Each structure stands twice: as structure tokens, then as C-alpha cells.
Simulated scan of single mutants.
Amino acid sequence: MKKWALPLSLAAGVLALSGCNGAGDGNVIATSKAGDVTDMELYAEMKEKYGPQMEQALQELMQKKVLSENYEVTDDELVKELKKAKEQLGDQYEMFLAQYGLDEDGFKEFLKLELLREKAALADVKVTDDEVKKYYDAWQPEINVSHILVEDEAKVKEVQQKLADGGDFAKLATEYSTDPGSAENGGSLGWIDNAGRAQFVPEFTEALGTLKVNEVSKPVKSDYGYHIIKITDQKEKGSFEDMKSQMTDEVKKSKVDSDTLQTKLEKEMKAADVKVIDKDLKGAFETNDDTTSEPKDDEESKEAK
């Protein structure tokens, strides 16, 4: 499950403001000599223009209410998740918030909903001690990785020679690397956890498994060019007993896909007896096996046969 593609909830704030009840004329939110605009007018306009996104926003608001009744996200969990997100996004964090029109509080609300969904999805997942121990044995601790990417063999030999002559890896990465995202940071790709190793091309991932801290790899060829890789730091791997809870959670997460999550969310919404009053947003909680659509009249039924 995850990560970092945020849902496009353009209308969430308006939905929360109006309460989706369609009652009354609404509250004035802007004035002019030509007339006022109310929250209900804005709500109606956004339904007209952003129908699917409004349904998605309604889903999120209702899921947060329903799931919060059955599952708890602590402040410590939320702080930890935010810290993890910042580490993963690195220098792109502020750009990421701006892209989705969020401040940090808004992003924390998104993360809270993600954690609630995750807790719901994992609630029914069972794992055995043997599965957890096997996963632990293969699990690799976090590593801090840097690399220098160049286009051709001649250039990679030039960089290798400069490293052999005592050249500074970070300075050479800034000078030579064609990976702009890491070059400006001295080649640093940041901390990579066990699951994060798989985000790289296979050749790169395989090389990570062979390197020790401060060891520089031989050139690794991929579709992007030639990589020279260095692990600059590595965290310690704790004992099985100390890490059993974490390992259990990670094994459970590996068994949950988007279909499993969706099925669980639908089950939670059904148990909460969710009903959509606004006819324009009726599709927000409809599923493929819903039988709530209006029956056809006799003539339509005969034609269908």
C-alpha cells in the first residue's frame, strides 16, 4: 500500500463546510456590489465541475469518521509517519506540498487517513511465526546510499581514476553525475530501507547487497548509464525478539494489496450503514456488486430479455 500519490480532493473543504445536507441558503463566504456567494453555491458549482473528485472527497471524509470509531492513530504514530515521509521526499518535501496545495497540517490529515486505512486493512491479516522469522532472516537494515551516474564507459573510467587518486566522492558526484536529483547533494540518495531497495533498477539493487559501508562499487551498467555506488552509512539490525513486532507488521503489509484494502473499506462502510443523501453523490460508495440501483419498468425489462 502507498505511497506518495495523493488523492485529488479539491472539494474536501467545501464538503466539510456544507455538511452535504443541502439545507438552507448557506453561509455567505464572499461579498460584492453585484451580490454575495454562499458556501452552498460554491458547493453546487464544484459538484457541477468536479463531480468525480467530489465523490472521492466524500469517501475520504466518511472513511475518516467511520474508521476513527474503530481504530486509533496516536500522535506518536502520526509524528513518526510524517518524519518518514519527509525522509523519503527529502528536499522535494516543500515542492510536494505545493504541488497538492497543502500545508503541513493538511498533509498530516492525509497521513492520518492513510494510517487508519492501513490499520483497517491489517486488522484481519494473519501471519505465522515461521513467516515472520523467514522475513527477518532476509531483512536488510537501512543504508545511506550515494552514487555517481555517467553516460559512457570512458567517463566512468575517468571518475574511477580520480577516486583511486584520492578524489572526494561527493565532489566528483557534483561535478560528473548526470542524475540531477542526487548530484546537487553530492550523489546522496538518502536513507534506503529494506523495501526501498527494490525501487532501483535490478542491477543497482543487486550491487547494494554486495557492498559494505564506505566501499565503492565497480561500475554498474544499467539502461541509464554507468553507476558508481557507495554506501556511506548503515543502521544496526536488532535481534529477532526486539524486531518481531516490526517484522510482523511488515509481513502483514506485504499481504495487503489495493483490492484487499478496497474490500475492507467497503465492509467497514457497510457495517456503519453509510447512506448518501445527496443524489448527485450517490455513486461515492457504490460497488460493482451493489443491487441498490432502481429497477427498470416493465417495458424496459421486456426489452432487456
Results as ranks from 00 to 15, higher is better:
residue 72 E to F: 08
residue 183 A to H: 03
residue 159 V to Q: 01
residue 204 F to I: 13
residue 162 K to D: 03
residue 250 E to A: 09
residue 229 I to L: 05
residue 149 L to W: 04
residue 264 K to G: 09
residue 171 K to H: 04
residue 284 A to H: 05
residue 202 P to D: 07
residue 133 K to H: 10
residue 278 D to F: 05
residue 10 L to P: 08
residue 220 V to L: 09
residue 116 L to R: 11
residue 28 V to S: 00
residue 124 D to A: 15
residue 178 T to S: 13
residue 134 K to L: 10
residue 127 V to G: 08
residue 65 K to L: 08
residue 30 A to L: 02
residue 272 A to H: 10
residue 89 L to T: 06
residue 116 L to I: 13
residue 140 Q to E: 12
residue 8 L to F: 04
residue 109 E to Q: 07
residue 89 L to H: 05
residue 133 K to M: 12
residue 21 N to R: 12
residue 232 T to C: 03
residue 83 K to P: 07
residue 159 V to S: 04
residue 57 A to V: 08
residue 210 T to Q: 13
residue 9 S to I: 12
residue 298 D to C: 11
residue 166 G to L: 10
residue 36 D to V: 13
residue 195 A to P: 11
residue 247 M to N: 00
residue 175 E to H: 14
residue 161 Q to P: 10
residue 204 F to N: 10
residue 198 A to Y: 15
residue 275 K to R: 07
residue 6 L to N: 01
residue 75 D to R: 13
residue 302 K to H: 14
residue 175 E to W: 13
residue 69 E to K: 14
residue 285 F to H: 04
residue 149 L to K: 00
residue 192 I to W: 00
residue 22 G to E: 04
residue 278 D to T: 01
residue 166 G to A: 06
residue 281 L to W: 06
residue 4 W to S: 13
residue 3 K to T: 10
residue 124 D to Q: 14
residue 151 E to Y: 12
residue 236 E to A: 07
residue 176 Y to S: 03
residue 191 W to T: 15
residue 166 G to M: 09
